[in-house]
């Protein structure tokens, strides 16, 4: 497959992010997460709230300090101590788009100052005229116009604000953008605008995305590969078409069957896998496989042993004992 030959842009290995919450309680928001992102692709990361997908994104871009593991960007370690110059050049390569279009823009700043922030910090414009030219250009790139530059964020709608957020990220010409639920706060018709814009920008500028969301249908649409997270672990990772057509992990299967489809006939005839119960607390996750408490196929081994991260098919990784051939042959022998 083409994936193998492609150049790795970002490598995440055994990434851990733990938060101390009170005495002796540790919230393992991200626990041993590993994945690669190839140049020019979009990797989707889905999961329910509290599964650690946003924390993963924020840890990669150094908003949180990782508890363990490492992140390599173009062969260079992202974490650990760095000189100011290294950090700055890193900040120009990797950018982020945030979830809440109302909280992600400073209400006291005009749009031109918000967009030009990266230009100012990195000194990308020689003079004021050049700075404004860049701002106008960026505004037009995201489908707004010059007249908007001197206005304040509260005058814009959610979709427009989100595009301003994209323009701010683009101002420093990044290669890699982490989009942290960029569309979940937007209306359906506006979501499509933002997603189309992101895909257009990817084509034009060769961007690489990590697209974090809980909306599986949108993730499938925009992503080349998709990773599914549950309670701080990645449970399955595959090409998006393959994942949606043949999900292997029981959690992925349940998640996919739970999405309501805008088609009444399909809805009437569909058999859902309804998961019992709720997400366990990430402070004291279940032993062994974390999904076992809600899994319809749970076995004895699931409680005692953490499932291995294995390639069940080419390019299709899953962490589930059901697909562990060694284990299954062992069982048969017994």
């Amino acid at each position: 497959m083409a994936v193998v030959e492609r150049e790795k842009l970002l490598e995440v290995k055994n990434l851990k992010k733990h938060f101390n919450v009170g005495k002796n309680a540790v919230l393992k928001a991200v626990d041993n997460v590993s994945f690669d992102i190839y140049k020019g692709e979009t990797l989707g990361l889905v999961g329910e709230s509290g599964c650690g997908k946003s924390t993963t994104g924020r840890t990669i871009i150094r908003l949180y300090e990782a508890t363990g593991g490492n992140v390599t960007f173009e062969g260079k370690d992202v974490h650990g101590k760095k000189s100011r110059k290294d950090l700055k050049s890193f900040n120009r390569r990797m950018q982020m788009i945030f979830q809440d279009p109302y909280a992600s823009l400073n209400p006291r700043m005009t749009i031109k100052d918000i967009i030009a922030e990266g230009i100012d910090i990195h000194g990308l414009a020689k003079n004021d005229k050049e700075r404004m030219e860049r701002v106008y250009e960026l505004l037009e790139t995201v489908g707004l116009n010059r007249a908007h530059a001197s206005r304040y964020p509260h005058e814009f709608s959610g979709g427009q604000r989100q595009r301003i957020g994209i323009a701010r990220a683009l101002a420093v010409d990044p290669d890699f953008i982490i989009a942290d639920e960029p569309i979940s706060a937007l209306d359906v018709s506006i979501q499509a605008q933002v997603v189309n814009l992101m895909m257009k920008l990817q084509k034009e500028r060769g961007l690489t995305y990590l697209f974090i969301a809980h909306d599986l249908s949108m993730v499938k649409h925009i992503s080349d590969r998709v990773g599914v997270m549950y309670l701080g672990n990645i449970v399955e990772l595959a090409e998006s078409d393959e994942l949606y057509e043949e999900p292997l992990h029981p959690y992925t299967q349940a998640l996919l069957s739970a999405i309501p489809v805008p088609d009444p006939e399909v809805e009437r005839s569909r058999e859902r896998i309804i998961l019992e119960g709720d997400l366990p607390s990430p402070i004291s996750p279940p032993s062994g496989c974390r999904f076992r408490t809600r899994c319809p196929h749970a076995m004895d081994v699931c409680a005692s042993k953490e499932p291995k991260w294995l390639e069940a098919r080419e390019g299709h990784w899953v962490a589930c004992h059901l697909y562990d051939n060694e284990l299954n042959t062992e069982n048969k022998q017994q």
Partner: peptide, 11 residues
């Protein structure tokens, strides 16, 4: 988030 955005821009 706007403060976080500024941090990621290297402010």
């Amino acid at each position: 988030e706007y403060v976080l955005a500024s941090v990621t821009l290297g402010a």
